[in-house]
Design a protein around this nucleic acid. Structure first.
Lengths: 159, 159
DNA sequence: CCAAGATAGATGCATTTGCATGTATCACTG
DNA sequence: CAGTGATACATGCAAATGCATCTATCTTGG
């Protein structure tokens, strides 16, 4: 398999696009993190509760969660330790794989997720909704989903 | 000043848009961080070199840099300590404000930034260019710039 | 010009993170 | 089905991070 060398302008466009995506994420995240909601629980820990709350079965493998967050495997393991110590999640052994750990929310975890989630969603809407029209938001949603889908499927370079 | 309550669907759209922007950033960043280039220097430290390299005057105040990066003030201060210890940047006192610190690249810093930058840009292009058409990239660039501009100008809620 | 408050950045200290590695289970091969 | 390598998660330890606080400078009101 061969690929044609991308033109220099194509490279530049891709780089600028990523740069802008990244900076906008930093700007928004900075604001969201400062939200009142995250006095109760750091945003990274909330994100795990949120991810679990979205999951149809209510439980996820640690490695699945790890794909969603920007944390090393060991850091996630200890983050889950903290959540478990606070009684927000429960570890159980995956039925189909003795090595795997299934993580699920406790009642308290569900409760706290909803509580923080309400505030958090309000903060998000306050930042994003006035910045872009509904049409633009839908387009941004579509483009980032497309980008994410491509990146997720592409295998890492072996170089 | 009063604002009309946003409809529930507007809130949901904003939340989904942010969620997708965030996850796509995580997915791309994960790949980029794993790049060969960042064996030499962690990506967060590279980002400071990059930011300095982009600046017309070649020097920036620490608090300006801090706005670009998702780090606390103290963490940035120590990150700069590390860069300085490696001889990549130099601190100097801001001429117009005795409290302020101006940061500039050394020759070695410039060199390393360019070296890592070349690889990094290639990795970015490899991930982003095949995922979206040029037209789509331009649109994504426009939308994220617009979002960032709004968020930067909006003052924090005093709530 | 002085006092009081604000701002820029540095630092002590506890927490979080990642790398390297360890343990246990799984998948495959012969 | 034993042996070998791969995968999932945990853990020791050094490094990075954030919070609270400190020092030094700036700004403002009298």
């Amino acid at each position: 398999m061969t690929t044609t060398a991308p033109s220099s302008s194509a490279v530049r466009l891709a780089a600028e696009t990523w740069e802008s995506l990244f900076r906008s994420q930093v700007a928004v995240m900075r604001r969201l993190q400062a939200g009142q909601a995250f006095k109760k629980l750091p945003i990274k820990e909330y994100d795990v509760l949120f991810t679990l709350s979205r999951c149809p079965t209510g439980k996820l493998r640690l490695n699945e969660i790890n794909d969603h967050v920007l944390l090393s495997q060991s850091s996630l393991s200890r983050l889950v330790d903290r959540l478990e110590k606070r009684g927000l999640v429960e570890r159980s052994i995956a039925p189909d794989d003795g090595r795997g750990i299934l993580l699920g929310l406790t009642a308290a975890g569900h409760e706290l997720q909803k509580e923080i989630g309400r505030e958090h969603v309000r903060d998000i809407a306050e930042l994003v909704a006035p910045a872009l029209t509904a049409e633009e938001q839908r387009e941004l949603l579509r483009l980032t989903e497309k980008l994410q889908a491509f990146v997720a499927h592409k295998q890492p370079r072996e170089s």
